[in-house]
C-alpha cells in the first residue's frame, strides 16, 4: 500500500532516481575510480552550485515562470560580496550584502513581471544583461580575489568528512522543501502555476507571492555565489554564464513542467545529481568535452520525452 502510494505520487522522481542509480551502476562497472568515497564526495561538492541555483529555478518554474538571470545575478552578488569582504569587514556582513543583492535583483524581476506585466522570459532576459553589466561595471571587468580563511572555509572545510558546500546545499534543500510543502507560500506557488486566475479568485495576492518567488530565486543564486566565490577564492564578473541552462535542465530532468504547477525539490536534486554524476563519470572515462555536451543534451531530451509519453499513456 505504502509503496503503491509512493509510486503514485512520486513516480516521476522515482523514475529519475532509478535512472541515476543505473547510471551509477554503469559507471561503477566501467571505471574503478568512480565508486570511491572520495570521488562521490567530490561529485556532491561539484553539484552543489548548480543544485542550489536549481532550487530557485524550480520554484519559479512551478509558478509557470522562468528565470534566465540566475547566472548573472550570481556573478553580480558574488562580486559585490567579494568587494565588501576585501574591506576587512566582518564576514557575516559581506554575506548579508551579497545575499541582499541577490534578493534585490530577484525582487526586481518579480516586480517587472507582476506590476510591469512583462512575460518572465523577457523580464529576466533583461535582468540577465543588466546584472551581468552591473557586475562588470562594478569591477571594471576584473575578478575580485583573495579572501580570509574564515570565508574560504565555506567551500574548503568539512564536517564529518562531508564538504561544506554539500552541507549548505542540503540545508537549502531541506529549508526550501519545507517551504514548498509546509507553508502557504508553497501552496500558493503550486496554485499560481496550476491556474493563476483560479488562485486570484480564491483571494490570494498573486502579485505579492509571485514577486517573492523571484526574490527567493535571487536568494538561491546568491547562496550559490557564496560557495563559488569561496571555492575559487575569487569572484569573477563573468562567472555563472549558462548556469541558467544547467539549472533549467536539472529542474526539468527532475520532473517539473515548464507549464507550471508541477515539480518537487526532491526531483530537482536528483536531476542535478544526475547531471553531476554524468559529467564526473564522462571525465573519468576520458570522454571529450564535445561528446559530453551531446550526451548531456540527449539525457535532457530522453528524460522529458519519457515523461511525456508516460503522461499520455496514463490518460
Amino acid at each position: 500500500m505504502n509503496f503503491k502510494k509512493l509510486l503514485l505520487h512520486h513516480g516521476r522522481q522515482l523514475g529519475t532516481l532509478a535512472g541515476l542509480l543505473l547510471l551509477v551502476l554503469a559507471l561503477s562497472l566501467r571505471t574503478p575510480y568512480f565508486l570511491t568515497v572520495s570521488n562521490l564526495l567530490t561529485v556532491l561538492e561539484q553539484v552543489s552550485i548548480n543544485a542550489i541555483v536549481a532550487v530557485g529555478m524550480t520554484v519559479v518554474i512551478i509558478t509557470a515562470g522562468i528565470d534566465l538571470s540566475v547566472g548573472s545575478i550570481l556573478a553580480f552578488a558574488g562580486v559585490v560580496m567579494a568587494t565588501v569582504l576585501q574591506k576587512d569587514l566582518p564576514v557575516p556582513l559581506g554575506l548579508a550584502v551579497g545575499l541582499g543583492v541577490g534578493v534585490g535583483c530577484g525582487l526586481l524581476n518579480g516586480l517587472l513581471i507582476t506590476i510591469g506585466r512583462l512575460p518572465p522570459f523577457i523580464a529576466t532576459l533583461g535582468m540577465m544583461s543588466i546584472a551581468r553589466g552591473g557586475a562588470l561595471l562594478f569591477t571594471n571587468g576584473r575578478p575580485v580575489s583573495g579572501f580570509s580563511d574564515g570565508f574560504r572555509a565555506l567551500a574548503t572545510s568539512q564536517f564529518l568528512y562531508i564538504p561544506m558546500p554539500t552541507l549548505i546545499m542540503l540545508g537549502v534543500y531541506v529549508a526550501c522543501h519545507l517551504l514548498l510543502t509546509r507553508t502557504r507560500f508553497g501552496l500558493y506557488a503550486y496554485a499560481m502555476g496550476g491556474n493563476e486566475q483560479a488562485t486570484h479568485l480564491s483571494g490570494i495576492n498573486v502579485r505579492l507571492h509571485k514577486t517573492l518567488v523571484y526574490g527567493l530565486c535571487g536568494l538561491t543564486s546568491a547562496i550559490a555565489a557564496v560557495i563559488l566565490t569561496a571555492r575559487l577564492n575569487s569572484a569573477q564578473p563573468i562567472a555563472g554564464m549558462t548556469y541558467e541552462l544547467d539549472a533549467i535542465a536539472a529542474t526539468v530532468i527532475g520532473g517539473a513542467s515548464l507549464m507550471g504547477g508541477q515539480g518537487t525539490l526532491v526531483g530537482t536534486l536528483i536531476g542535478a545529481l544526475l547531471m553531476g554524476v554524468l559529467r564526473n563519470g564522462l571525465n573519468l572515462l576520458e570522454v571529450s568535452s564535445f561528446l559530453q555536451q551531446v550526451i548531456i543534451g540527449a539525457v535532457i531530451i530522453v528524460a522529458v520525452l519519457l515523461d511525456m509519453t508516460l503522461k499520455q499513456n496514463r490518460k
Partner: peptide, 18 residues
C-alpha cells in the same frame, strides 16, 4: 476549469487555498 479550481492540485489543496 478555468476560474474555479487549480486542476493539477488535489481536492485537499484546492479547499485549503482560500
Amino acid at each position: 476549469r478555468q476560474f474555479g479550481l487549480v486542476l493539477p492540485l488535489s481536492i485537499k489543496h484546492n479547499v485549503s487555498l482560500p
